[in-house]
């Protein structure tokens, strides 16, 4: 695993329901990321389909990794020799009407793995539980560009996900998101908190543009384990950012603020019990 890698974030706006168009948009950003010699590029939550697709989710869903869109992204990753993370509606391979809100990681060698969103917002303008089954796993993938964990949007409100990923060895957490404008303040705080409290790099890539009256606020960012924002994209509109990170910085920060060393597992049983009793 190299110590230094270059991460690119493709903050795009999507055309809801038009996968072909959205893949073309991704391709342009991938070409841009190759020009700056990026090792990995991430795109927002449901970047394959757009976020506000509602009932059309059923017809837009594909299986992972055997769906045609994953194959298409695999070909691009191979051709451009880059790792790609993107979001899509996954059709459950065993039960066709069950869908997941999924982040997919692809390397130049092909499909690596996926993360199914665990916390599905169903309040305010969000209706994800109507469509998706939550995930139950927080996998960490050992890749040629580092140990990577993924999460999706509202998961960032729940520190347990980032904690599990960091305990499983993730050095880079990629949070893909489709966060509308009124939530900006929460995310700007929480993304930095997840990086700091786990002493990991956190790459947050958010959707931009307007879908059915929702303005997605963009503001994608790459955050250091110390919480400092290394690179930040523009608010609201399409943008592209990148940063070169050095994993060895984690050691320095962990020695300075040894959070993982100071964890107290004996209180976690109570945490579970109290949550169940809520």
């Amino acid at each position: 695993m190299p110590d230094a890698i270059t991460i690119a974030l493709g903050q795009i706006s999507c055309r809801p329901g038009d996968k072909k168009h959205n893949i073309e948009t991704m391709k342009k950003r991938i070409a841009e990321s190759k020009r700056i010699k990026a090792d990995i590029i991430a795109f927002p939550e449901l970047s394959l389909t757009g976020y506000v697709v509602r009932d059309r989710a059923y017809e837009l869903a594909e299986t992972v990794p055997n769906g045609s869109s994953v194959h298409e992204i695999e070909k691009i990753a191979k051709k451009e020799n880059i790792h790609i993370i993107f979001g899509m509606i996954e059709r459950n391979a065993r039960a066709n009407a069950i869908l997941h809100n999924t982040a997919v990681l692809i390397s130049p060698k092909g499909y690596v793995g996926k993360y199914q969103k665990m916390h599905l917002p169903t309040h305010s303008v969000f209706e994800e539980k109507r469509y998706f089954r939550p995930g139950y796993k927080t996998p960490v993938f050992e890749t040629e560009v580092g140990k990577i964990g993924m999460m999706i949007c509202y998961d960032v409100y729940f520190p347990e996900i980032a904690r599990l990923l960091s305990l499983r060895g993730a050095k880079l957490i990629v949070g893909i998101s489709a966060s509308p404008s009124v939530r900006r303040g929460f995310f700007e705080t929480l993304t930095a908190a997840r990086a700091m409290e786990n002493t990991v790099f956190f790459a947050f890539v958010n959707l931009a543009g307007v879908e059915d009256g929702l303005q997605f606020w963009g503001g994608s960012r790459i955050i250091a384990p110390s919480g400092s924002v290394i690179s930040q994209a523009k608010y609201d509109i399409d943008d592209f950012i990148s940063a070169t990170i050095s994993y060895s910085d984690i050691n320095r920060v962990q020695a300075w603020v040894p959070i993982l060393r100071d964890l107290r597992p004996e209180i976690y049983t109570s945490l579970r019990e109290e949550t169940e009793n809520l």
Binding site: P16, G17, D18, V52, V53, R54, D55, R56, E127, R130, E211, D212
Partner: peptide, 9 residues
Amino acid sequence: GADFRLPYM
């Protein structure tokens, strides 16, 4: 108006 939930595309 009830459970057709469609975006305008």
